[in-house]
């Protein structure tokens, strides 16, 4: 399963690679990393068919996670990959907005990786 992670913090890549070390090694998950919404869109253009799940931060400079979500839902209305939003600001308003824009899930930082792992496996 190909998963695209979008976050402006570059260390997120190292973290995911280590947290999902066993799954990556076994080939269960494959992670792609982009560091902005714009980058994520161009990545989707290339890997469209491959990516089945997107994990995106909301608060990023430039295009925000919510704008990215909106864009994905508009450009790929028929084959929507699963989109999970992650944010440090877990307020209800943002939560509602994310769900309204078509997010499949809403996670708050700090991430509980055990829970995330279960959710990802469930989606599979």
């Amino acid at each position: 399963m190909n998963i695209l992670v979008v976050d402006d913090e570059r260390d997120v890549q190292t973290l995911f690679e280590q947290r999902f070390r066993r799954e990556i090694r076994s080939g269960e998950f494959q992670f792609f990393f982009t560091f902005s919404g714009e980058e994520a869109l161009s990545c989707l253009e290339k890997e469209d068919s491959e990516i089945v799940l997107i994990l995106s931060d909301i608060n990023m400079p430039g295009m925000s996670g919510l704008e990215l979500l909106q864009s994905i839902r508009q450009t790929h209305p028929h084959s929507p990959p699963v989109v999970m939003m992650i944010t440090a600001y877990g307020d209800d308003e943002t939560h509602a907005q994310a769900l309204q824009l078509g997010a499949n899930d809403f996670l708050t930082k700090p991430l509980n990786f055990g829970e995330l792992k279960d959710k990802l496996k469930e989606t599979l």
Binding site: L15, Q18, K109
Partner: peptide, 20 residues
Amino acid sequence: HEIQNPLNFVNNFSEVSVEL
């Protein structure tokens, strides 16, 4: 927010390190 972010990394990387 600015403190929460690095703290998350500190926590996550130390947890992962324990696993490693």
